[in-house]
Design a binder for these strands. Structure first.
Lengths: 228, 228
DNA sequence: GTCTATATGAGGATAGAC
DNA sequence: GTCTATCCTCATATAGAC
């Protein structure tokens, strides 16, 4: 993947290896390919990227491992596509929310909803991202540098809103914006480990529950500065 | 590992493979062995369990890979020791806190502090646990079943306190205990991904910051039932 | 307790027929 | 677009000398 921000490289950008078969330059990604990516994502999520063999992926697709290489350069290319698709969608949603505007509390609530809202459509990608992030980043080359780039961009968006909320008096001044962001982020994404559709709460319910706790806390009564 | 609760199997319990060399039955684990385990844990944490080769571990220990097998049955045995040591310590700390007693808010605060408090001494183990949990669980056999057992036990302890707090009126009745526990748990453990000693806050500071947000929320002023 | 040497197997990837 | 066949590399683990 070359850029999380713009879809379908318009033909130019050369990728490292054999510049691959990839998208037919026209822009219409083959459905076959997309299907294979989705299928692989599920296995990556279930067993981890490294533990997943190309033979397994091919098996589940009903073909032999060699045939996979007609569609993809390498195993890395597949996981690359899984992650970049997700990040593109996520960033798009955040930007749209920011364009809609509102006071900091409103915007932040929306961002929390967006986060939880990706849990179902992107469950596999988020799982892979969490479990295999550091391994992928450790690979030689700069292929997965965009992961950090996207992370930084997202962090910036969140922290801006938190700081604005503090400046406007909607959020307490004594919480650390960066730390608070990290805790929110972690809470949302790690939910992918245990969330399963069909439980008591759907992702929208999860989001509202968390928004309540985040803004008002779990303690009863007036704000207590009490420390145990 | 046979039981997270009791240290040093008193000689009986047969492990699956060749029942190994392990601890000299006396109970005094060799320091050499412990050192190797710690060393391996760091590499597991850095690169992931699967991506870590026995050669690397041996290399860093200054011996050859074959020699590692004088100390351990298999790579699995090493990671097993890493994780069970951590869980034994963690459960011990929780139980001690519960024995000290106190009202729910006090106890829960202590539990949060314990969680963050393990971040430094057990950084490697926690990282491995998070990244390789599902892979280890997917291995054939019941070797890593104790992971789930320990997790269940911990969950029980937390939820008990949350429910008690609700019954006694210290915590809001409209939050879901299990969901709240999960969010607390996730927030604490995932911090291992970004926390590094030497930053603005140490783990104790992190704990206090989180306790504040958890109980009172980030919003200013009186409790707002406002929804964005 | 460590080394040398090696068995054994699996995984990613390729070439070329169909 | 898939298959057959296979290369090459690298991993875990073992056996036995020192």
């Amino acid at each position: 993947m070359e850029d999380v921000n713009t879809r379908k490289n318009s033909g130019g950008t050369a990728t490292k290896r054999q510049s691959a078969k990839r998208v037919p330059a026209s822009g219409a990604a083959s459905e076959r390919r997309d299907h294979l990516v989705k299928l692989a994502a599920e296995i990556f999520a279930r067993k981890g990227f490294q533990a997943t063999t190309v033979r397994e992926i091919a098996n589940e697709a009903g073909i032999l491992s060699g045939s996979l290489y007609h569609h993809f350069d390498s195993k890395e290319t597949i996981v690359d596509e899984v992650l970049s698709d997700f990040l593109r969608d996520l960033l798009g949603r955040y930007r749209a929310a920011l364009e809609r505007g509102g006071d900091p509390r409103t915007v932040l609530s929306e961002m929390v909803r967006i986060g939880f809202g990706t849990l179902e459509p992107h469950r596999a990608a988020i799982t892979v991202m969490q479990n295999d992030w550091s391994y992928l980043r450790s690979l030689p080359g700069d292929r997965f540098d965009y992961l950090v780039k996207a992370e930084d961009e997202v962090e910036r968006l969140w922290i801006e809103q938190i700081k604005r909320g503090q400046a406007e008096g909607q959020f307490r001044a004594d919480v650390d914006p960066k730390l608070t962001y990290r805790m929110i982020r972690d809470t949302i994404w790690v939910a992918v480990r245990w969330f399963r559709p069909g439980g008591k709460l759907n992702t929208a319910g999860l989001a509202e529950h968390y928004i309540t706790v985040l803004f008002d806390g779990v303690a009863t009564g007036e704000r207590s500065s009490q420390r145990a």
